[in-house]
Structure formats: structure tokens, C-alpha cells
Write a protein that binds this DNA or RNA. Structure first.
Lengths: 342, 342
DNA sequence: TTGAAAGCGCTAACAC
DNA sequence: GTGTTAGCGCTTTCAA
């Protein structure tokens, strides 16, 4: 039996509305009355029931974040960015983890909306794009990050130019003298996976290097996929001299396969990937990587939601494209002029 | 204007309670009526308002998790464990991140309780233990993980025996021939930090090794602290031959200092720590480490909450102590019979 | 300046 | 089997 508004009203012989007004600072309340009420609240340890407030207010001062994998440090940083802005705006954050499963994503979208969140930051894993349409139309702010939904409808977005970033990293490998480039990417229904592939292939084209489909691998964004694909490739007569992986997990798996084969990085195969965050400083080799501004992605996405909540009529959609950083490291450096024999 | 219960009731000329009953499967509803209602719900895309349900039900089918750092993979795994059990029981999970800040922890506890969560899984960072007392008394399940609150009150708990684990890792270092052991631990108001210190010191005692306070460092559980403390130590004439860090971040910072000084691991200094998870397989050296069963900690904590929710009268508290694993690795192996000269 | 009362959207007695 | 209705705890007109 927790204490509630009417209890403290009764105790002070005032009405619930007076108590409510002093708590919320709305409407006028006599100075003396206010002080008595504030004192009683403090003493009793009264805590307003947010559920009731939310029902009345028709909004929950909270927002949801749906990510594919909470233990991926890219997403962890996104979440921290969202949290910072949310908490500055007095909102809570619901974090949901889909494990890259389309079914879980759909369920969490539903659950969060049933819980009346003010908005959703979502890294979709490429299910049915029509899933979002009715919600977005209904005016709930959906901000997509990382992956874009495959739809013509309009939506808010915070991301980087994946194709361009991919192109730049491929160019770096080519600049290092590589001509036999391989790519391992994720599920092509995820825009990050397909865009990164596109940029990679475009770069080969731009450099007059023939496309080699046998060195384009598609798996899940998990290390097992990277391991499997690379293991298969290394059974062949010829092998690529450089590998670009569309995320860090894929690369770690591939590296495991490379090492098992007794090959050296970067001497035998140079490697590079997206978002290889090394919090430890102990990863060897140090990985050449595109680093997305994860924290900013999260905080900007949350700001969009806050803006839209403040200004509901605002119907325009924001498309924010941030700049990633290319971090060159020993995993792809120092073995120039190799493989010209291609 | 989203669609609601009364809309579909009106449309079908039935009462709201009939619709409610068919949705919830409670009470009896005629087969034909039910089917009509189900069809209308499906067609209209009606989604129940969870806030209203929660208010009525006086419970939100959700639980909160408060952790110190979401980007720490130990906590990420705990969260996944909580989520698994929660979602199996049709509950959502609110994840909150305190960044090791006592103020944020207090705020999140308040916020989550105001939001009527069914229970709380919390890795407290050692603020005022009395904070929890009124809540626990009020019957809300609080399950502590990792850190224990410093109170005589009773509470639920899922953890490992930190002192014992610490003792075992110190013993391992001693078995490797080390006699000059250093420890870097976290804030001593956190029970993990103080217990790990206790076990370490007990082990030295048990082995007849005099305690050396100058090699006990206390910082935050962050890599900056590890770096600073080790940097200071390495300015002295004598240095420890082995280091045990109370968490992985502390160790990574210390290793940075060790390398900057041009020393080798484990030849010059052997190292070991708690919870060095290497998802990449690329950490060098491979770290000797106590590994806590993080996923189990989270899932068991969530199960306790679910049990208590089902059975509110149940007033007994559960204290679950799990067994960690000691992973021996190259960071502490292979340099035996050194430093006997102590 | 204060209070009475009408809901927010839903569930669950209880009555029919 | 179905409907009426009284709340859940709060905010917010509106009247006094």
C-alpha cells in the first residue's frame, strides 16, 4: 500500500487538485499551502505514479531504442548517446535487443508503441518495411540509424554514407598495392550490408579492377560467418591479398580462419573493416577501420525525437548524414607493391 | 487519434467488456462473437494501450536493470540474461546506465519505481545503502548483482564469491613463482572492489608473504585509473613482478603503462584480472582472468523477480552464489622461478 | 486561491 | 454470454 496523492491531501485537509498543482507547479497555490504540502510530500516520501500520469498525459516521457546487439560496442555507444539527450530532457530510455532477429524487432516495435513511448530510435534488421509505415503515418517519431528501411515512404534518419566510406577503405587497400580484394558483408536486405558492398564494387570499377564475384561473401554480421566464408576461400588455389569486412565481428571470424591456415596479416592478407573499436588497446594486429561517430548518431537521433515531441505539427523529416573516420593501421599497411603479378 | 477498445466495441455493437474479455481470454464469450471481434481487431490493427492496462493492473509487466556501464561486456551479458527470462515471461526490460555515478543510480531507482516496474536488477555503485531499505520493505523485488549494498537488511542477491575468486587468482600467481604481487582495485565502497582486495590479501597471508600496502592501488573501475596507478608505480626503484587488477578496464590501463615503460608481459610483469572477455580472439597477450557467469547472473536475477511477482507473499530472500571460472593464459604463464630473490 | 468532478483507456466485478 | 459500471492514480478544466 504505497502512499498516494489523496493520502497527503487528506492528511493536510486540502484537495487532491491542490496537491497536484503544487507538485507540477501548474495553477496557483497559496504560498503557505504550498509549503505545507511540499513538507508533507518530503516527509512521507511520496512518489507520483508515472503510469497514471502517463495515461492522463497521453505520453510517457520515454523513448525506445532498438538495436541488433547490445554487446556490440558500436550500439553501446549509440545507446549512451541517446541516453545523454534523453536524460537531459527528462526522458527515460527503453533499450531493446533484437539479436538480429526480425521477429524480435517486430515485437519490440509493437511493445514499445503499446507502452506509448514518445519516439523510437531503431537499427532495423531489414524485415518488412511496411511494418513501420502505419506507425510513421500516425505521427510517432521513428528515427532510423545504421540501416535504412527499404521503402519509398519518408522517415527520419541518422547515418553515414556507407557506400562512400566503403569506397574509401577499398581505395586505401588499392593504394597499398592490392589488386585481389575480397569482401565479406552482412545480409543484403540490410542497407548497411548492401551499401558497403556497392561502394566496394564501385571502387574496384573506378580503379579498373575486374569484379570477382567469387570473392564477395555474404553472411550474418557475426564472427561465425566471417570464419566460415574465409575458411572456404582459403581452400582454393588462389587467395585474395586483401580483405574488407563489413563489420568487426565478421573480420574477427575471418582472421581466425586466416591464422588457422598459418597465414600472416598483413603480409599474406591485409585486412580492414567497419567499426573495429578497440577499447583495450591490446588488439593485434591493430585494425584499419572506418569508425562511425556512434555516440553522435545516438544523440542526434534522440534530439530529433525531442524536437518532434515539442512540435507535433512538424511533419518534415530529417536526414542527417555524418562523416566517419578512416583509421589506418598495421593490419593493412606496410606491404606495398605486392601482388602486381595479378 | 489511435483506435481503442470502445471504437471496435461500437463498430461491432458489443460492449467494451466483451471485447476486453476476448482480448485477454478471460471470462466467457460466445464463439461467434469472439471471432467477429478478433477479426475486427486484426483488421483495424488495434493495439491495446499498455499504460492504461498497467494502471488498472497495478503492474507494468516490466523490470528494470541498472548497471554501471553498458559498454562493459560483463554487464552486456548480464542484460542479455535478464532479457531472456523477462521475454520468456512476457515482460519488457528497462536498461539504465549509471556510468558509475551514485547520483544517476539514485535517480534511476526512483524513476523505475515510479514507472511501477515489477522488480529491479541492480549493480549498485555503493551509494547510501539506506536508499533501498524503504523500497525493499515495501515489497518491490530488488535483486542485487555484482555489488552488495552495505546494509544489515535482508535482500536478494546473485553473485560470486569475490574474495574466494580473488584468492584463487592470487594463488595462481604465487604458484607461478611470484612473490612481489600488486593489486589495483576499484572504489572500496563497492563490495566487489573490497572483497577482491580482501581475498588477495588473505592469499598473501596464507602463503606467508608480507603485505605491501604500497602495491595496493585503489581507483575507479576505469582504464585511466589503471594507467595512472601503474605509471606511478613504475617510477619507483622496485616494481612488482605480478599484477592483479580487479577488473578488465583497470588492467588494460595498467598494461598501457607497462608497455610505455618498455616492459614485457609476462616476462617483466605477469598480469591477471577479473572478467577479461575477449570477443575478438585478438587480444595479446591473452589475459589470465576470472570469468563470472554473466549471462546466468542476469537470468537467475530475473527469475527471482518473476518468482516473487507470482508469489507476492513470499518474503524470503534468495542469496545465490555462482562459481566463476579461472582462465589461465599467457599473460601470467611461463616465467616460473623468477623473483625468488625477493 | 481552492475544490469538485470529469476523464485518460482499460479490466473485472456484478447484474442481467 | 453479454453489458453496466466502478474504479486504477493522476491532471485539469471549471466553478466557487
Amino acid at each position: 500500500m504505497t502512499i498516494q496523492l489523496k493520502d497527503i491531501a487528506k492528511q493536510l485537509n486540502v484537495s487532491v487538485s491542490t496537491v497536484s498543482k503544487t507538485i507540477n507547479g501548474t495553477g496557483r497555490v497559496g504560498k503557505e499551502t504550498r509549503e505545507r504540502i511540499l513538507a508533507a510530500i518530503k516527509e512521507s516520501g511520496y512518489q507520483p505514479n508515472e503510469v497514471a500520469r502517463s495515461l492522463k498525459r497521453k505520453s510517457t516521457r520515454s523513448l525506445g531504442v532498438i538495436v541488433a546487439d547490445i554487446s556490440n560496442s558500436f550500439y553501446a555507444k549509440v545507446i549512451k548517446g541517446v541516453e545523454k539527450v534523453a536524460s537531459a530532457n527528462d526522458h527515460n530510455v527503453f533499450v531493446c535487443n533484437t539479436d538480429e532477429k526480425i521477429g524480435k524487432e517486430e515485437e519490440y516495435v509493437r511493445v514499445l508503441l503499446q507502452n506509448q513511448v514518445s519516439g523510437l530510435v531503431i537499427a532495423t534488421v531489414g524485415g518488412d518495411p511496411n511494418l513501420f509505415q502505419p506507425y510513421i503515418k500516425s505521427g510517432i517519431p521513428f528515427v532510423f540509424i545504421d540501416n535504412l528501411p527499404d521503402t519509398d515512404d519518408n522517415f527520419d534518419l541518422v547515418t553515414i554514407d556507407n557506400a562512400k566510406a566503403s569506397h574509401s577503405i577499398a581505395q586505401h587497400l588499392i593504394d597499398q598495392g592490392h589488386r585481389k580484394l575480397a569482401l565479406i558483408t552482412g545480409p543484403l536486405n540490410q542497407s548497411t550490408a548492401s551499401e558497403r558492398k556497392k561502394g566496394f564494387q564501385k571502387c574496384l570499377e573506378d580503379n579498373g579492377i575486374p569484379l570477382q564475384d567469387e570473392w564477395i561473401g555474404v553472411g550474418e554480421f557475426k564472427s561465425e560467418s566471417g570464419y566460415q566464408i574465409m575458411t572456404e576461400w582459403l581452400k582454393r588455389d588462389e587467395r585474395p591479398s586483401a580483405l574488407f569486412a563489413a563489420n568487426d565481428f565478421l573480420l574477427y571470424g575471418a582472421i581466425k580462419a586466416i591464422y588457422e591456415k598459418g597465414l600472416k596479416i598483413p603480409e599474406d592478407i591485409a585486412v580492414a573493416c567497419f567499426d573495429a573499436h578497440d577499447e583495450t588497446g591490446l588488439l593485434r594486429p591493430r585494425i584499419t577501420s572506418i569508425i562511425q561517430p556512434a555516440f553522435e548518431i545516438g544523440s542526434i537521433a534522440a534530439e530529433i525525437i525531442m524536437r518532434k515531441e515539442r512540435n507535433k505539427e512538424r511533419k518534415l523529416f530529417e536526414k542527417i548524414v555524418l562523416e566517419p573516420t578512416l583509421l589506418m593501421n598495421e593490419s593493412s599497411l606496410g606491404v606495398v607493391d605486392k601482388d602486381e603479378s595479378f
